[in-house]
Nucleic acid binder design. Sequence first.
DNA 1: GGTGTGACCAGCT
DNA 2: AAGCTGGCCACAC
Length: 113
Amino acid sequence: MKNEKDISFFEKVYIVARKIPRGRVTSYGAIAAFIAAPGSARMVGWALNNCHSLDKFVPAHRVVNRNGMLTGKHHFGNTGTMKQLLENEGAIIENDRIINFRELFWNPSTELS
DNA sequence: GGTGTGACCAGCT
DNA sequence: AAGCTGGCCACAC
């Protein structure tokens, strides 16, 4: 029988990431705190690093660090892909950082409950 | 089964 | 003020 505990950490990251509404962003720490424990933030990034193995597209571009900086833009293939995707969703990016990050911030614990 | 790693975070110098 | 180091947990070899 498959309960939520059987789902890998990765799966949870992917699930939460896919549930991020369009035009919203969240942080690695927020996801980590929601699915496991605060401190596993690095794991989240690592999970997203492997997200390319999935058949489905994971909006990893909506996941940034606490400062709203596009730390993982290099992992999108082209450096500008992440920025363009976010800008296309209404985010304001400047110097690889989301200016209106606080407005767009999407808290899984609050929105997803 | 131990070691290394990873797109982070927070604290210290 | 800014830069760096350590720590954290889960997965792959």
